[in-house]
């Protein structure tokens, strides 16, 4: 019997196995994105932008036009592509460090201008690629390379609520949601809705995905799922936050 791997059609098979660590959530987010691209039949139109950070390991991930940008600058690069070629479906793919720290101004202003692009942000509670430093999304008390005694909320504040921030800034027509790799089917639905929102020309669309970084968390599979399913949702609420035509859930 000849069986082939069940990869999304839009994945570029010759670059698989992909470059992410064993158990990395990026693979699951990109699986959900790949299936969403397939189901919407938009592969030929997609321009995929990835950031610095582990997201850049996806520079050759899809059989789609792809561009890799400077840290935090994926949103404006992809915005430029969309303005020059409004017929393209433009996706900015980034990490939490890229989107909420060094690229926060770009995310905020793209949302404020209601740019017709789709931003997808992988929240793994740390700067993964550089070895696990504290990020804006690091949980209170969570130990990282740069918060060895745990994040102290007195001096370092609380985790950034990205989608809530974007939803507060974005105008009517925007789509904002937070999914999780613990529910890939739901995550795919959110990403599909975000892309559909761009196709319909409604406005900005943004999906944050709660995701695992077993390498820097130093977690085995059981502890990785536990952190994603039990710890992260205490600060990050999963669901649709803003949809065109109606106010959040």
């Amino acid at each position: 019997m000849s069986v082939v791997p069940n990869m999304p059609k839009s994945w570029r098979e010759e670059t698989k196995p992909h470059k992410f660590c064993p158990g990395c959530g990026h693979g699951l987010v990109l699986k959900a994105l790949g299936e969403a691209i397939d189901e919407l039949a938009i592969q030929e139109k997609v321009v995929f932008g990835c950031d610095i950070g582990c997201s850049l390991l996806s520079w050759d991930f899809f059989n789609c036009d792809s561009v890799q940008t400077h840290h935090g600058r994926t949103t404006p690069v992809v915005t430029g592509v969309k303005r020059a070629r409004p017929d393209r479906i433009c996706i900015a793919y980034m990490g939490d460090g890229g989107g909420y720290a060094i690229g926060a101004q770009h995310l905020v202003n793209a949302a404020a201008r209601n740019e017709r692009i789709t931003a997808i942000l992988v929240n793994n509670c740390n700067y993964g690629m550089t070895g696990g430093q504290m990020a804006p999304t690091t949980l209170p008390g969570m130990k990282t390379q740069t918060s060895p005694y745990g994040r102290d909320t007195d001096s370092m504040g609380y985790p950034t609520q990205g989608p809530e921030m974007v939803a507060a800034i974005a105008r009517e027509g925007a789509y904002v949601a937070r999914g999780t790799v613990a529910n890939v089917r739901q995550l795919k639905r959110y990403i599909k809705s975000a892309l559909q929102n761009q196709i319909d020309g409604n406005g900005f669309s943004f999906v944050e995905a709660l995701s695992g970084c077993p390498t820097n968390w130093s977690t085995n599979a059981q502890k990785t799922w536990e952190f994603i399913e039990k710890e992260m949702p205490q600060y990050f609420k999963v669901g649709e936050i803003k949809t065109p035509g109606k106010k959040g859930e």
Binding site: P5, K16, P17, P22, G23, N220, A221, Q222, W225
Partner: peptide, 12 residues
Amino acid sequence: GLCKGCGLCIEK
């Protein structure tokens, strides 16, 4: 040839 031995599947 694709499995990286992460164990996520075993847990689920």
